[in-house]
């Protein structure tokens, strides 16, 4: 079965979804990401959906789940590049994905993850004092 590739960028993982996903592919991605967060000790997950023309409740739920799971594993999930038509449709559908962080593009998303890491490292430093 095909799988969506997960790239590693420093301590973040990057997933670019470029195909119209069927449900099993989405479920597989959720599982793969969860294990990769642990095995790579990732602190952030970027999911680029700028190529997706449709996000229905199933994919929405997948994004929500990934965000929730990564939170438990101390990683931030940022969904980037959602198209306007997709955003309008998701809101109309009743899915506002309040648990998911968002950014306009990969660059901004990466900056968000780094900001948080810098913040937490500063906290750690404070603790040591």
């Amino acid at each position: 079965m095909d799988r969506i590739p997960i790239l590693k960028f420093g301590n973040a993982l990057l997933v670019t979804i470029q195909v119209d996903m069927h449900d099993r592919l989405a479920t597989a991605l959720e599982e793969d990401l969860t294990s990769r967060i642990v095995s790579n000790n990732a602190r952030g997950v970027l999911i680029d959906i700028s190529a997706l023309e449709v996000v229905d409740s199933f994919i929405g739920r997948m994004l929500d789940n990934i965000a929730a799971v990564s939170r438990i594993l101390d990683a931030d999930t940022v969904v980037v590049g959602m198209r306007p038509a997709v955003a309008i449709t998701l809101v109309e559908l009743g899915l506002s994905l309040t648990g998911v962080k968002t950014a306009l593009n990969v660059e901004r998303g990466m900056a968000m993850i780094h900001d948080r890491l810098a913040g937490s490292e500063a906290d750690d430093a404070d603790d040591e004092d």
Binding site: P84, V91, L97, T102, L104, R108
Partner: peptide, 12 residues
């Protein structure tokens, strides 16, 4: 409010 929610989904 929907506009605000949609903008948030896009990261703004």
């Amino acid at each position: 409010l929907k506009t605000v929610a949609a903008a948030r989904l896009m990261g703004a």
